[in-house]
Amino acid sequence: MYAFEFERPTTVDDAVKALASEDAQALGGGQTLIPTLKQRLAAPETLVSLGGIAEMKGVCIGDSGEVCIGGATSHATVAAEAGQYPALAELAAHIGDPAVRNRGTIGGSLANNDPSACYPAAALGSNATIITNKRDIAADDYFQGMFTTALEEGEIITEVRFPVPEKANYQKFVQPASRFALVGVFVAKYSDGVRVAVTGASEEGVHRWSEAEEALSADFSADAISGLSVPADGLIGDLHGTPEYRAHLVKVMTGRAVTASA
């Protein structure tokens, strides 16, 4: 790692101030950022830890029944405490490994927007609201391509609010070495329609599969998507799977998620 200054503020206001300095970078749980720093792929002057901010930690239920999760809440805490939204808790319980889940945070995952990460699928599949120190951002507006989000310089995700669907499920086909999603599909059935969010597959990062959403909104069964096909254009191809393979997996995992939805 290149040398950097380290700050650990205890309030959001102090973190915002610290991030205003030149080449400052926010640190969530560090489970992606620290390995990135070790590779010397990033060189911040100052690293501002969000881990000491108590007001950004924890899970609660909002006024409209939505599950509200502080931006610095670990995956393990979401897995243990977000039982009001079982599909979300289950997703959090299968990110990385136990030690990673004890450090990694929802805000860090969403800010990074890794194209193979799990949380972006849950946030987009639920049209969660990403709350920052400046504004509220709908998930539909938040994800803007691989490793790209609507966040501005120095903007911090303080909370994420998930409306709880009638039924939902997340199915992940793990890349066997990294255990990241080779393809992951989050399906959520709300009273006003079904949302299907796909991670791991596209060079544009997490995205919705609108044809499946239409079909499933009319008939919420795996059969409803049997006639659909996913074009391989723009999907990721690497040694773990071709674009055609990932396209096939998107459909298979969507079907499994619908069948498993509860």
Partner: peptide
């Protein structure tokens, strides 16, 4: 491995398992 994959560095911090090679010392204040 020093890439947070192998788990040889697991310690407990405030009662939970973490990979000590993927946490800054300053975070353990």
């Amino acid at each position: 491995c020093d890439t947070s994959q192998c788990g040889a560095c697991v310690v407990h911090v405030d009662g939970v398992a973490v990979k000590a090679c993927a946490m800054l010392a300053g975070e353990a204040e």
